[in-house]
């Protein structure tokens, strides 16, 4: 079991999550959308696995490197 924490790639606003804690995701499956520079940007799971924890809430403003979710493969 390996855990991977996916962090915000830039200062952004979290729009929505497409998967909940405990959900199975494939590699490169869209897990959440963030907004930066008025552009909606998808954040994907880097590996196949289970969403172990979601760290941010929809609507929250996050700085770069703030954890968004943890995926366990």
């Amino acid at each position: 079991m390996a855990e991977q924490v996916v962090k915000a790639p830039m200062r952004a606003r979290v729009i929505r999550f497409h998967a909940q804690e405990g959900a199975q995701v494939a590699a490169n499956q869209k897990v959440c959308d963030i907004e930066a520079l008025k552009m909606e940007i998808a954040v994907y799971s880097p590996v196949a696995g289970t969403i172990k924890e979601i760290h941010a809430e929809a609507g929250a403003h996050v700085d770069a490197d703030v954890p968004l979710f943890t995926v366990e493969s």
Binding site: M10, N28, A36, L37, M39, I41, Y44, P46
Partner: peptide, 18 residues
């Protein structure tokens, strides 16, 4: 934004916009 879009097509883990 276009750089981000075209970059994400090639590699979804890539964030080029900033």
């Amino acid at each position: 934004r276009v750089s981000q879009t075209v970059g994400a097509e090639a590699n979804p883990q890539n964030f080029l916009i900033m």
